[in-house]
Write a protein that binds this DNA or RNA. Structure first.
Lengths: 334, 334
DNA sequence: GTGAAAGCGCTAACAT
DNA sequence: ATGTTAGCGCTTTCAC
């Protein structure tokens, strides 16, 4: 049973193939009479256009590639949600590829997307392999790097200073009078590392010791990991007075471990999260955190891509700092 | 600046286009000498094959379509993760489309995927519009419906009885001696509705009253929603002795609201979750829940698709019940 | 092992 | 407003 093609529809409707094509893409360029005949034929045959053929013939794919490290992390799910909304509404397909936090897989992801002839690429982070950068540059298409600020953007760049955010969060704890402040993290991707740098900078400027707690085996951030890491710290001796977690999940895990051990938050220990996930505000005690603007990042990235794709004038090398906001809540209130 | 094509590579390497094509797809069918020349030319020109052309010419897309309601829900992120792993390793592209819990959007999603000429479709749930079913049937490709069991599967079906799971969870509470048991839910998608049916069946068989608490405006399950719904219940008068939440997120929210109000869990109220999200075990008190096998669902669905795509013998109408498991923890222990 | 010819199913460009 | 022609960039025959 052969697949139905445009020609089949044209034959049934008694028109030329191009007319069918027009009815499907720009119905108003066709007279109502023919349009009706064609629509009827399409329906009768259950015709579904072959997108590959359309892409090949028109040299347009109406597809945008998006690379994220993972879908596990809600942050990226929210970001994608916003991206998706804007791009799909504008008639674009969003092709999502995971890099699994690996620069090598990111490289393959870029190749795969270029093979698909996507019209733009939105990529998480600003650190890529040399070849990745080269591929993205040579492809001559709009590229948006997100979630971080690059000293040397490939093209567009929408993000925030992860380092400043880390520093701000740490300073908040220092100002709270805490001195033994630990930094908790699982997977140290480039963004977590920047926050860590910010933490260290803040500690150093206050003349305080660096108390890092980094999962030995990189594990993706989770509540369970937070519990584990915190338990480990406690068992290792002198507990910190405060902890700054790279992620609210870790913070929640640490909080639960505290409860188990009868350690009071914030009386015995202050806990600071990151990203302001939706449960942070309603945790008990409520969790201090740092708001990051994932939705806006996704929305803006998508809009910039659309703008670049629509108008021919490329407003190159734009960098947008979306900032962040510290939200002090009960978990760090003395 | 024209895009590099296979012909360009062939010219540079001094071979025919078909040889380049072979080097890329079945390198062992080409002599080492030519292979090296071609590889060099590919690298020198930075050639990236046009997948649309390849798909059109070969009538194979090596793409599998997956429809999920949303990416917000970790359940689907985990499921996709497993799916992805299997399919990508086998050389397939995974095209993910969201239906946003709408049967109408699901229909468009199916059309979009068929337009892409995906070789199989893996779809969440067993309830679809009439046209959706028709499209899926007529397309004559492997279809896997997941997460539920269908009385009349389109093709393959891998899932579990949501209703039995709901009934089992409710019985567990009833056996704990609770009588005023409420059912908490936000968005009532088909699976949540089935769990609800199970809840009602259990309550009815025990001769107990139905105490449902359903969000007025459908909202996706979240910790905040759990807090809100539970607060609402408390303010409305006589509090239930136990609650069964469609989702661990709701359960966690309810638990936090309890803490805020000084209601002890499980002494004053028992709380039962669903899905056994990763924080359930480490919550304080630990949260009773029902394990659902998202990873296995994804993995198996992908494997079945591969099998159907590889061997020509279609093992039609298979249905696999992956079951579920009740995990009693502190939150329901009297 | 390598190549020549033909065509996949559409659309752009140019008629009419 | 509609049709004709040519071709997008690959791969599938089928020769050699």
């Amino acid at each position: 049973m052969r697949r139905i093609t445009l020609d089949d529809v044209a034959n049934l409707a008694g028109v030329s193939p191009i007319t069918v094509s027009r009815v499907l893409r720009k119905p108003h360029a066709v007279s109502p009479a023919l349009r009706l005949r064609v629509d009827a034929a399409v329906k009768e045959l259950g015709y579904v256009p072959n997108i590959a053929a359309s892409r090949l013939a028109s040299a347009r794919t109406h597809a945008v590639g998006v690379i994220v490290p993972t879908l596990y992390n809600v942050i990226f799910a929210e970001y994608l949600f916003a991206l998706h909304d804007v791009l799909v509404a504008a008639g674009f397909q969003v092709i999502v590829v995971n890099s699994r936090y690996s620069e090598v897989e990111e490289e393959s992801a870029i190749k795969a997307l270029l093979g698909q002839r996507v019209e733009a690429i939105i990529i998480t982070g600003t650190h890529h392999t040399l070849l990745s950068r080269q591929l993205l540059t040579q492809a001559r298409l709009p590229v948006v790097e997100t979630f971080e600020l690059s000293p040397d953007p490939i093209d567009l760049n929408i993000g925030m200073s992860q380092e400043q955010a880390g520093q701000t969060a740490t300073r908040h704890l220092i100002e709270g009078g805490f001195r033994r402040i630990a930094f908790l993290t699982g997977n140290l991707d480039h963004r977590a590392r920047s926050r860590f740098d910010g933490y260290r900078a803040a500690m150093e400027e206050a003349g305080l010791p660096d108390l890092q707690i980094i999962a030995e085996k990189p594990r993706h951030s989770s509540v369970a990991l937070g519990s584990d890491l915190f338990a480990l710290t406690c068992d290792r001796g002198k507990a910190p007075e405060a902890i700054f977690c790279t992620d609210d999940n870790l913070a929640l895990g640490a909080m639960q471990e505290c409860r188990k051990r009868g350690i009071r938050v914030p009386d015995d220990i202050a806990i600071m999260g990151f990203h302001d996930l939706e449960f942070a505000a309603c945790a008990a005690p409520s969790l201090s955190s740092v708001i990051t603007r994932r939705f806006e990042t996704g929305k803006l990235a998508a809009e910039k891509v659309l703008a670049a794709l629509t108008s021919s004038l490329r407003s190159k090398d734009q960098q947008i700092d979306l900032g962040f906001a510290l939200i002090p809540r009960e978990s760090t209130t003395v």
